[in-house]
């Protein structure tokens, strides 16, 4: 009997340990790279108390995705600059909406920060009731951009954007274009492309970037609007990238023209950053902002990001807010035209 009791106590103990780990997830594990010696940044002098305890960094997606990879890259630097442990936690669901709805209810004290994605946080509340609105999220910084490009399988008869437009004009709706999700960055890019060129395609939504790329590699769809990092991986081997929606040529794919060069005013990307509830004090936002911006200015970080097909961004809170407001206007108009704007 006593033996059984002992076994039980041990088991409950193990359970508790696991519970602790599970709730805080892959966190306080000893991080390598930059030593985590507390070196408060100069900015912290104005708000001497923040941060004084660990900060939870919530990823609104599953582990292993782009947001997760970026957060893991930042984690050791953040711990060094802010001098407190950074706990990365996943809260996936509904394309990020579950986490962002929670953001609006969280304490605005800067100890819980959320990964944010643009255009997700703009488009979701415009299309349906998702439990948050864009202006309830205060962006802290935007640090990673993936421009959106148009690609076809390597054996496709289309060799240029002109080819596609020409065929689509003669055969409206015949070309299938894959993207990730409905009324998302890829979908809205296609809608704009159709509007700018007077064409019509059949949009086939997939449940993420991985199934989308699987579909184009297998030739299940005729073309895709996809993220630059995915395009870089397969460009010239299994797919042809026809054009990219950037202002200037994308350094990692120097031979690919921009839509602008081709006379189509299409500039679209998925941008990643972090955000906090809107009434978080500015002093706190500044501390976080400077830490994140310092990371994207690190040459090593920039170099790996570019190699992987990302564009490093250094957009602070104010700049990001203005950028978001600008996008809201553009997207509202497009969604109104296709009848998707929430009434």
């Amino acid at each position: 009997m006593r033996k059984e009791l002992l076994i039980l106590v041990v088991l409950v103990g193990i359970g508790l340990l696991i519970a602790g780990c599970a709730q805080q997830q892959p966190k306080a594990t000893p991080t390598p790279a930059p030593a985590a010696t507390p070196t408060p940044t100069p900015v912290t002098t104005s708000v001497a108390k923040y941060p004084s305890k660990s900060i939870t960094y919530i990823i609104p997606f599953n582990p292993g995705g782009q947001s997760d990879i970026e957060a893991r890259r930042q984690q050791p630097y953040l711990e060094k600059y802010l001098g407190v442990p950074i706990i990365i936690t996943y809260k996936p669901g509904a394309g990020g909406a579950v986490a962002w709805a929670e953001l609006t209810r969280t304490e605005p004290d800067g100890y819980t920060i959320y990964g944010i994605n643009i255009p997700h946080i703009i488009l979701q509340p415009l299309v349906k009731d998702v439990g948050y609105t864009t202006d309830q999220i205060k962006p802290v910084a935007l640090f990673q951009r993936t421009p959106i490009g148009l690609a076809v399988p390597i054996d496709s008869p289309f060799n240029s954007v002109e080819d596609i437009i020409e065929y689509a004009k003669e055969n409206p709706g015949k070309i299938t274009v894959g993207g990730s999700g409905t009324y998302t960055g890829h979908h809205i890019t296609l809608l704009q492309f159709e509007k700018l060129t007077g064409t019509k395609f059949t949009y086939v939504p997939f449940t993420g970037a991985a199934p989308q790329m699987q579909a184009i590699l297998g030739g299940q769809v005729d073309a895709v609007f996809a993220n630059s990092n995915d395009l870089v991986k397969y460009s010239g081997k299994q797919i042809k990238v026809l054009a990219i929606a950037t202002e200037e040529r994308f350094p990692t794919l120097p031979d690919v023209p921009t839509f602008k060069e081709l006379g189509i005013d299409l500039v679209e990307s998925i941008d990643r950053g972090v955000g906090v509830p809107k009434n978080t004090p500015d002093d706190i936002v500044k501390v976080l902002e400077s830490a994140f911006l310092k990371i994207t200015q690190n040459p090593d970080v920039r170099k790996t990001m570019e190699e992987e097909g990302f564009v490093p961004l250094s957009m602070g809170s104010k700049e990001a807010k203005a950028y978001i407001n600008e996008k809201v206007k553009v997207y509202k108009e497009i969604l109104k035209e296709v009848g998707a704007l929430k009434s």
């Binding site: 669901g93 509904a94 909406a97 579950v98 709805a101 349906k128 409905t182 009324y183 939504p205």
Partner: peptide, 17 residues
């Protein structure tokens, strides 16, 4: 596919299914 919200009865957490 399509992104319609179904049977959540107003719970935003249920959006994830």
């Amino acid at each position: 596919i399509g992104g319609d919200v179904r049977f959540t009865f107003g719970f935003t957490e249920l959006q994830a299914g």
